[in-house]
């Protein structure tokens, strides 16, 4: 069975210079799409990946990452909407490159589908009440 998941990887300082992602392709035959990557000077590396492949190989690959010391989190937990702050104006809708926001035609409320979110962060400063939060 093929799976496709979006995950956030955090590399501790000691791993930043090792070719970890290469092993995912070479040893576990996983297809990857890098959505975001950054290295904080003197701190850690952060990589947001879409990872696709056979379920068994995917599990083994994730297992390899954990053993290597990489912290893994599902992407959907990382971008959230503060429902108290969101006033459903719609400023985010055309800013989002993946169409993660849409208007419910009946209620005109803005719906957020975090499965479509690639954590690019464009919606965060574009939201007037600052309701979108990223937790990297």
């Amino acid at each position: 069975m093929t799976v496709s998941k979006r995950i956030v990887l955090r590399f501790p300082r000691r791993l930043v210079e090792r070719p970890i992602v290469y092993r995912l392709v070479k040893d576990y035959d996983l297809e990857l799409n890098i959505l975001k990557a950054s290295i904080t000077p003197e701190e850690e590396g952060l990589l947001v990946l879409e990872l696709k492949g056979d379920q068994k190989e995917y599990d083994k690959g994730v297992d390899f990452l954990i053993k290597a010391g990489v912290k893994i989190q599902s992407l959907s937990q990382d971008v959230t909407r503060n429902e108290e702050r969101c006033n459903h104006c719609g400023a985010c809708i055309t800013v989002c490159p993946t169409g993660a926001f849409r208007v419910d035609p009946k209620t005109r409320e803005v719906l957020f589908d975090n499965e479509k979110c690639i954590a690019c962060g464009l919606c965060i400063p574009a939201c007037p009440p600052r309701a979108m939060e990223v937790h990297f």
Partner: peptide, 25 residues
């Protein structure tokens, strides 16, 4: 505008609101 697309210079342009209709309701 509320249909989500308008036509400008022959191009279909996606629309978004700055004011909140649900809150106006």
């Amino acid at each position: 505008l509320k249909s989500g697309r308008i036509k400008v210079n022959g191009k279909a342009v996606p629309t978004a609101s700055r004011s909140s209709y649900p809150r106006a309701v």
